[in-house]
Nucleic acid binder design. Structure first.
Length: 269
DNA sequence: AACTGAATAT
DNA sequence: AATATTCAGT
């Protein structure tokens, strides 16, 4: 602590950004889409019932529709979308189910994040999302192998993972049935642009276990019944019936497959 | 250069 | 604890 200090100090002060350069905290940091996803009204503090979030910009399968319509109003309209973090993904039982199904139908060998993600074809799902989940899922599987003692059951079983049956072959790596009968990997090819309808985000500590519903799959927007009560409601619903994805993106061993019907996740809850 | 999987961070 | 992000090894 000598007199030098005063030197750098003044300099430092000089370099400070002017107040105008600082973004007002109150300004919307949220893109319209995100705001909607969050059920936030940035302008109107009006009543907050939420009934449903009918995706307004419903992507018409055929229409030229794009998802990052920033541009235009530069004056008052701000779009710091670039810098925005997407909300934490919440793996609902439904989502996890899809995940497990995808892995099961891919075979452990092909079940790598990218492929899984593609097969799931959930809008907004990123490869990292899947990778993260996959990592944890593998740990879960390992743990399970060790503890096959079913004594008493599994009370505090990993909540999420327990919600969906683990395909047997998952537990025996290196067995005759290690992979599914899929010589080709006709994954659905579809680029999800930005976040479309990300369903949930961490509400912090919530008493309810799963109250959320998952994302919506790409096509086939069916309506979701949301039970919004204070009880741990396990809802169900999500598009029923298998849907098809068209077009194939070469993938590993590009075959002539054009139409792929997804797994019979019909057993969804 | 793109992916993966493990470690590490929030 | 759950999810994200970083990191090193292909």
């Amino acid at each position: 602590m000598k007199e030098d200090d005063s030197n750098w100090f003044s300099k430092w002060e000089d370099d400070l950004p002017s107040p105008e350069d600082l973004m007002p905290l109150s300004q919307t940091l949220i893109t319209p889409d995100l705001a909607i996803a969050f059920d936030i009204r940035t302008t109107h503090p009006n009543n907050h019932h939420h009934h449903e979030q009918p995706p307004p910009p419903s992507s018409h399968p055929n229409s030229g529709e794009f998802d990052s319509p920033e541009l235009g109003g530069s004056g008052g309209g701000d779009e710091p979308a670039r810098t925005l973090k997407r909300p934490r993904l919440v793996w609902t039982p439904q989502l996890h189910k899809r995940f497990v199904d995808a892995v099961a139908h891919l075979g452990i060998k092909n079940a790598v994040p990218k492929t899984i993600m593609q097969l799931m074809s959930v809008d907004g799902l990123t490869r990292e999302n899947v990778a993260s989940h996959l990592q944890k899922y593998r740990l879960y599987l390992k743990r399970m192998q060790g503890l096959s003692s079913g004594s008493g059951g599994d009370p505090a079983t990993d909540h999420l993972f327990a919600s969906s049956p683990v395909p047997a072959h998952f537990l025996h790596p290196g067995r005759g049935n290690s992979d599914q009968f899929l010589p080709y990997v006709p994954v659905a090819a579809q680029q999800m642009g930005r976040y479309g309808q990300i369903g949930h985000f961490g509400p912090g500590r919530n008493g309810g276990q799963f109250e959320g519903h998952p994302f919506v799959s790409r096509q086939n927007h069916h309506q979701q019944v949301i039970h919004r009560v204070g009880t741990p409601v396990v809802h169900h619903n999500v598009s029923a019936a298998s849907y098809v994805v068209d077009d194939v993106e070469s993938a590993a061993a590009a075959n002539g497959r054009k139409i792929l019907t997804l797994f019979p996740t019909a057993g969804d809850d």
